[in-house]
Amino acid sequence: MSEAFKKVVSKIDPSIGIVSGLVLLLVIAGFFVSDRFGTTQNLLNILENSVSLGLASMGQTLVILTGGIDLSIGGIISLTSCLTSGVINGNSSLMFPVIAGVLLLGIAIGALNGVLIVRLGVHPLIVTLGMSMVLQGVTLMYTLEPPGAMPLSWDLVAYGKLLGVPVAPLVMVLIFIAMWAFLKKARLGRYIFAVGGNAEAARLSGIRQNRVVVFVYTACGFFATLTGLYLVSRMGIGDPRIGGYYMLSSITPVVVGGTILAGGKGGVIGTLIGVYLIIVLRNLLNFMDITSFYQWIIEGVIIIVAVSFYVERKKV
């Protein structure tokens, strides 16, 4: 029993251990800081607040695992959220076709990112930065204000409950588990690690790395669109500026969770815990009446501390 336990523990990446420990520490601290911290209401709040950041960081994790980066997540979120509420404009019969269309659009934008990176050979940072500007511009050309409205039924996505338990945070966790299994068990999942770990070796091993790269950016576009759709549900309306926050914030949980920017090492579970770390921290600081200004300072410090603790990969 204890042997088996030790074996399991030894398999866990140290970075995940560190981040989980920090989350735990924060939660314990929370109970001391405020009586309201431990209330069911607040704990559910934390879970709900983590959904959008979690979805956005999910896609970012896949991209970073290949050694890339996606700065266009914010642009995709803004655009898809506006298009959804703007086109539907309260008309529930339009809801499903529009949502399907928006999902396709997000996937297409992601795929375009991937194809441009592979075909033009331009660094992902530049391609997705350019794409982000294009998307932000298109969104602002479409609308400068939150457009249209969503049918009430779409609220269910963000606020739906099953037996008193909010569904969205649960679904998000399930998505993370599914993606964990995909990365672990599926061939394509392993290739993502291979391309990030040693691109030339991957090529020589007969892996079509271009396809892998296009896939991760496509998936990232998909997850960014999910984020946009979720936010539309939570706010009840799209917002042309809502994505800006996610452009760089989607990267923080990934790197804090132990995925290295060079690629090839890390995973989605670390990201999930990284998301909780940030959300719990924010929640806690709110209880301590510390304004968001100081929260930024703390977030910056956490990035540095976390990253400089993780040992970067040694080359074979």
Partner: peptide, 27 residues
């Protein structure tokens, strides 16, 4: 010296400066 990737190091500085600035101006 800390071998933090430039992207993350300067991202962190960016966020910290932002926090300091807002703390100073109260927003």
């Amino acid at each position: 010296k800390r071998k933090v990737s430039p992207f993350l190091a300067t991202l962190a500085t960016m966020i910290v400066l932002q926090g300091l600035r807002f703390a100073w101006t109260k927003g």
